[in-house]
């Protein structure tokens, strides 16, 4: 199987990252690619943006995609840990049973960072194969640490392979009776109480399937860290989004390298020549005049705020191409996606 061209979109909350991801996917499909867009954002907006029902399997999206094809997928984070454990322990039914009974596992079921991402990427890997996907767009969680998941499985794999887990699993041996070793072990036993057995059991079972874990991790790395993957940071013209973008760019540079572009959503005011025509026309009533004035005042303030943020982004990240998208006011999210896709078509390099 040949690896798809991959775009990973990251950004803070509320910047329109999912909408931009959907628009990018549509742009690529219109260029003739077979595109899969995957959202690992727990906010689940992708289905809304594309106007379709989505889940853990790739679904074809009916939009005018020219010669290409557009598929979308939105795995449910609530199922992640369960799916993950099922995949990991596919060949170890007894260990799986023990794991499901582990109280620490039951508590962690929804709370392990990076787990949802890893599961989503495993499902993506399968969908890419099944639908002969040539371009992949990944919409990450809206967080400053959205890209940290790339390093998480590796850290966990190292942890599972290290002395630490051997030591911890030893705590649970001798028919489940805990035998803490040394001073640290005794302290641990005193602090954790009965939970020490669950902790040791949890890591002990995970260590058993370490090989499988490493395999999944390599699949994910191939999709996300290969020479055909690029990273896009999405921002909006607000101070918070600007700071989130700066933070994400620093993280990306540390983890992978410089992002391919910085997308600034809602950064261009729509063309307003019509407002001038109306302001000078005798047909314009007083009520219309007041409405136009309200809209113009708002547009001006927005333009000023956005100009300030865009300039500061350009100054701070002079070496990253900046793609400005228009401010789109439309009722249907799908229409917004269409309009942003048109704007992106002249910005995304072939």
């Amino acid at each position: 199987m040949s690896r798809p061209q991959t775009y990973v979109c990251a950004g803070g909350g509320g910047v329109g990252k999912t909408t931009a991801s959907a628009a990018l996917a549509l742009t690529l499909a219109r260029r003739g690619e077979r595109v899969l867009v995957v959202s690992i954002d727990p906010a689940r907006r992708l289905a809304d943006a594309l106007g379709v029902k989505l889940g853990g399997h790739a679904t074809a999206v009916q939009m005018d995609a020219g010669d290409g094809a557009l598929f979308a997928m939105m795995p449910d984070p609530r199922d992640s840990m369960q799916t993950f454990i099922n995949i990991l322990f596919e060949n170890e039914p007894e260990a799986l049973e023990r794991m499901l009974k582990n109280r620490l596992y039951q508590m962690l079921e929804n709370a392990v960072p990076g787990m949802h991402e890893l599961v989503a990427m495993t499902l993506t890997w399968r969908a890419v194969d099944e639908h002969e996907v040539s371009a992949l767009v990944i919409d990450t969680a809206p967080s400053r640490n959205a890209v940290d998941f790339i390093s998480y499985p590796d850290r966990l794999a190292k942890l599972l392979g290290g002395r630490a887990v051997t030591w911890l699993s030893a705590l649970a041996r001798s028919d489940g009776e805990q035998r803490p070793k040394g001073r640290a072990g005794k302290l641990l036993d005193r602090v954790l109480g009965p939970a020490v057995g669950d902790l040791a059991g949890f890591f002990g079972e995970l260590a058993r399937v370490r090989g499988r874990f490493v395999e999944l991790n390599e699949g994910m790395a191939e999709l996300l860290l290969g020479s055909r993957s690029s990273y896009l940071v999405v921002a909006a013209p607000t101070g918070a989004a600007r700071d989130d973008a700066a933070y994400l760019i620093r993280r990306l540079e540390k983890l992978i390298g410089r992002p391919a572009a910085l997308i600034v959503n809602a950064a261009m005011a729509p063309e307003r020549a019509w407002a001038q025509t109306l302001s000078g026309a005798s047909e314009t009533t007083a009520a219309m005049g007041r409405a136009i004035e309200l809209l113009e005042r708002e547009a001006e303030r927005r333009a000023r705020a956005s100009q300030k943020v865009v300039e500061s982004l350009q100054r701070r990240h002079a070496n990253i191409p900046l793609w400005r998208l228009p401010f789109v006011e439309a009722l249907s999210p799908r229409e917004v996606v269409e309009q942003l896709s048109t704007a992106l078509s002249s910005l995304v390099p072939a």
Binding site: L108, A111, V112, L159, R163, A164, W167, A184, F203
Partner: peptide, 13 residues
Amino acid sequence: NFAMKPMINSAPA
């Protein structure tokens, strides 16, 4: 402790 340090780094709760 060598065992606890990586654990704390990966234990979100």
